[in-house]
């Protein structure tokens, strides 16, 4: 009787004393944990797959293009007429449009955005800052097609009132609208970087008798330079990759010019122009947009790498 009872209870006791994970339920749990971890890992890895697909598609279609057009011709020709009877493929023409519109946009956004950031971070009372920051962030949510509308139907007529020789489509108004669009990005990110500079640096500066402006420009700004660079680089990528504003307001004629009052097509607006039409899949015209896209990708990649380098070079550690 006693022996029987102990035999019965022994395995139960043994089971309990063993690690929970050896039971069948425990094994199921461990298996489920592994499966979930794998699924989560695959989701995270999907982002790498996306990058890979972007590169793969751009390069595969561009290779087809470069079989017909030499890279030398692509980079040095001064005409861009891929849909004409005698096609010419000079990406410089589209690049000039991208450079001019981006330059106008950055000439507006970087100084104004930086001044607003310095003001908000160093001068404004915390109540003003708390009120203005969400508004600026809200404004950066305005879709770009709406800014395109502003550029074509508000800024261009305004410019034409000042000088009636300005054409209806011009890079200046597209660039200005783009600049206004980018200001919130620059000011918000720069302000974050400047707020992150520790107070004792400012206090040290004030103790030496410096004014707020001197402290902002000579202590806070250099200390936050790494973060401010990140803001500027983001602004550049936004400007270079911006599509709808230029497609709406800058005109769609390929035009090798550096005069912002001209109308010209950019890399992005060329892609829009082609895809709005009906180009057959696999034709050389269809492949031009991938070659143009690859160029755009290289330009943004260059700025990203540059930003990465500058951030590391100028990072201040407190």
């Amino acid at each position: 009787m006693m022996a029987e009872e102990s035999r019965k209870s022994r395995p139960r006791f043994k089971k309990r004393s063993l690690l929970y994970s050896d039971s069948r339920f425990g094994r199921f749990r461990r298996w489920r944990e592994k499966l979930i971890e794998l699924l989560l890992f695959l989701s995270a890895f999907a982002s790498v797959a996306i990058t890979f697909m972007i590169g793969f598609i751009l390069i595969v279609e561009s290779i087809e293009f470069f079989k017909v057009v030499s890279i030398w011709e692509f980079l040095t020709d001064t005409e861009w007429t891929p849909l004409f009877a005698e096609p010419r493929y000079g990406i410089l023409v589209l690049l000039s449009g991208t450079v001019v519109t981006s330059f106008v946009a950055l000439a507006v956004a970087i100084p104004i955005g930086s001044i607003v950031a310095i003001y908000l971070s160093e001068y404004a009372s915390s109540r003003v800052r708390e009120a203005v920051k969400p508004v600026l962030e809200l404004l950066s949510a305005v879709p770009t097609v709406v800014y395109g509308y502003f550029a074509l139907l508000f800024i261009t007529p305004l410019l034409q009132r000042l000088n009636d020789e300005i054409p209806g489509f011009n890079m200046l108004s597209a660039g200005l609208a783009m600049g206004i669009m980018i200001i919130p990005y620059v000011s918000s990110l720069s302000e974050d970087a400047m707020r992150a500079v520790p107070m004792y640096l400012r206090e040290g500066s004030y103790a030496m008798g410096a004014t707020r402006l001197q402290t902002a420009l000579k202590v806070v700004f250099p200390a936050a330079f790494s973060g401010i660079t990140a803001a500027y680089i983001l602004a550049i990528s936004r400007a270079v990759g911006e599509t709808m504003i230029v497609a709406i307001a800058a005109g769609l004629q390929p035009n090798l010019t550096f005069n912002p009052l001209d109308s010209a097509s950019t890399i992005t607006s060329y892609i829009v122009q082609v895809t709005l039409g009906d180009l057959p899949h696999g034709s050389i015209g269809y492949q031009t947009i991938f070659a143009a896209g690859l160029t755009l990708m290289c330009v943004t990649l260059f700025f990203n790498v540059l930003g990465h380098y500058l951030r590391r070079r100028f990072r201040e550690i407190y």
Binding site: A44, F45, S47, V48, I50, T51, M53, I54, I57, L58, V60, E61, L234, S237, V240, G241, E242, T243, T268, I271, V272, T275, H281, I289, F290, G293, L296, M297, T300, N304
Partner: peptide, 27 residues
């Protein structure tokens, strides 16, 4: 690698996604 990749993806111009989708999803 995954982390760097995500921060880089965030700065890829949206029209590049369009080109990728045109080549991959559509065709």
């Amino acid at each position: 690698l995954i982390e760097i990749n995500i921060s880089n993806l965030a700065s890829v111009p949206s029209i590049i996604y369009g080109l990728m989708a045109l080549g991959l999803f559509v065709y």
